[in-house]
Amino acid sequence: MAYFLNTLFGSIVPMCITALVTMAITLIFKTSYTTNFAQGVISAFGAYVVASSLNKLGLSIWISLPIGMFAAMLIAVAVDVLIFRNGRYVNALGKQIITMGLISLVVGVIPLIFGLSDPAFKSFVNGNITFTLSDGSVASVTKNSLVCLALAVVVIAAIFILLRFSKWGLSVRATASNEYVAGMMGINTHVVTAVSWGLAGALGALAATINASSGNIISGYFMTNYQVYAFLAGILGGFSTFYGPVIAALMIPLANNLVQYIVNVLGVPELTGWSMVIVYAVALVIIFFKPQGIFGKKIARKV
C-alpha cells in the first residue's frame, strides 16, 4: 500500500509539468495552427533566467519565478510577432519547420548568455511529509511537489476559467475555430495570437521551473521529454478541445508510473525499463483506431 501511495506521489511532479506544457502547446496549436517544437527550449530558457536570478542576484525563488516567466513570455511573443506574423502564408509544414529552426536558435543563444556550466537550482520548500499507515509501512511525499501541484492547479484552473468566461477566452475560441472569420467579426486576431504565445511561454517557464526545482539538472534539452509527452497527449486527447489534451497529459506520466508499479508487484522488475515503451505503444494503438483523439470531435472536410 505504501509503495502504491509512493508511486502516486512520485507522479505528481511529472503530471504537473506535462499538463502545463500540454496546455501551452494546445494554446499555440489552436491559435497559430502549428505544433510548437520550440516549446521545450523556450521553457528551458525561462528556467535559465530563474536560475541566474537565483544565483547571481540572490533573489528568492518566488520573485525569480515571475521574472523567468516574463522572459520566456517575451521570447514567445517575439517569435510570434517577428516570425509567424510575417510568415502567414507559409504552409503548415513550413511553420513546423520554423519552430524546429527556433530550437537550434535558442539552444545556440543559451550558452552565449548564461555560460556553459549547468546552473544550480533551489526547491520551493524543503522537507518531506511522512505518513505511517495502519500496516506499519511509511509513505512520504516531498513538500516541494505539493507546492508544485498547487501552482499547476491554480494556473491551469485560471486559464480554463478565463477561456470559458472571459472576453479574451471567447476571442481565443473564435480564432481557434476560424481565424479568418474571427478577423472579419472584429476580433484582433494578431493580439489574440500574440497573447496565446506569451501565455504559452510563461506556462512553459513555470513547467521548467517546477522540473528544475524537483532536482533535475537544467540544460537546453531538459524539457524535450515532456514536450514529446505533450505532443502525444495532444493527439491522444484530440486537439479539437482544450480539456482533452490536458486530461491525456495527466494520464501519460501516471500510466508510466503505474506500469512500473504493476510490473514490480507482479515480480518482474526487469521489465521496469519497458514501461515507457508500453505506454507509447498503447497510445499509438489508440490513436490508430481513433485518429481524432479520445475526446476529439470528428471534423468533416470539404473536398
Binding site: 510575417n86 510568415g87 507559409v90 529552426g101 545556440g108 552565449l112
Partner: peptide
C-alpha cells in the same frame, strides 16, 4: 572558440530559408 554559434546560425538559416 565559440562552437555554439554554428547551432545558432543553422537555426537562423532554417527560418530564413523557409520564410
Amino acid at each position: 572558440e565559440n562552437p555554439v554559434i554554428i547551432t545558432f546560425v543553422s537555426g537562423i538559416l532554417v527560418i530564413i530559408v523557409v520564410m
